[in-house]
Design a protein around this nucleic acid. Structure first.
Lengths: 150, 150
DNA sequence: GCTGTCTAGTCCTATTTTAGAACCAAGGTT
DNA sequence: AACCTTGGTTCTAAAATAGGACTAGACAGC
């Protein structure tokens, strides 16, 4: 009765969810985008049990989403920093944010906002075709990798 | 020891993950994007336990991500169809897909592909500024709820 | 209309995961 | 040296998951 895994799936969505699709991982990554780097900072900000956090951070380091680097304040401690692979999760976090903003808040209810350096709200994520035309879900389809049932 | 929840969070990422951030929900939504509509189809395609699937589908219907509609083949059964809210998850699924493609496959390893109606691979997701300039994570920051620009 | 099969579930149990608190060791502070 | 902070590990109880047994209603063949 092992938890089902998708690390071998041919579908990249399934593999991605297998890697970072659990309860906490994306919240940790979100916090990392917000500048958090220390074990205690994550723990306090998320209210996560320390055991969970320890397990999750270890897995994220294994996955090369985070890496351990010497503390920036010169102490002997270490910090967790986003790697390239971690930073590439930015569109996923933004997608979740925009969906949440659009559908999970009552009118007028306050939420945090993503803004650019000038303080301007950002636009919506766009999926461009090869020629630059914006695509919606009905413009696309999934082409299967090999010969497999659908 | 109730499972931690974020349905009241001021951060839209946290609320989104609270709603659809569990193990199975996004995979069900992905399958719905691929055209699956029936209980048995989801069950067979995902290999998910029927009890799990039943719970998840009920929650997704409650959330108004899916809705029950009469079966398209005229039978007395019902089907699960994506709502507007469900279709709006498209960028999230695409983001996960593109991250998975980029980081979780060995060179040359086969995976399914997202293509447009002409069969052309789609481009990368883009986050535009209000003026249309593409933004990366380092161009943006999160403004906490309630903080209004002076 | 009777029988058998398919569909879409529910219910039950064993196992795994999570939450939360207690404990601990090394680093830093006074 | 004594004490607090940081970053964990270990323990237990509760909750979630996997998987199988079971069931009610739909449908197909006779």
């Amino acid at each position: 009765m092992k938890r089902t895994g998708f690390s071998e799936a041919e579908c990249p969505v399934a593999r991605a969810l297998d890697a970072i699709g659990d309860w906490w991982s994306l919240l940790i990554v979100r916090d990392a985008f917000d500048g958090l780097r220390r074990f205690g900072d994550f723990q306090k900000n998320l209210g996560i049990a320390k055991g969970m956090l320890s397990t999750r951070l270890r897995k994220l380091v294994e996955l090369d989403v985070l890496e351990l680097v010497p503390a920036s304040d010169g102490s002997a401690y270490q910090e967790y920093a986003l790697t390239r692979r971690g930073r590439d999760l930015f569109p996923v976090i933004v997608g979740l944010r925009q969906w949440g903003e659009a559908h999970l808040y009552a009118r007028g209810e306050a939420h945090s906002d993503l803004v650019d350096q000038a303080g301007q709200p950002v636009g919506q994520l766009v999926l461009p075709s090869r020629t630059g035309r914006p695509l919606t879900w009905s413009d696309t389809k999934v082409r299967k990798a090999g010969a497999r049932k659908r």
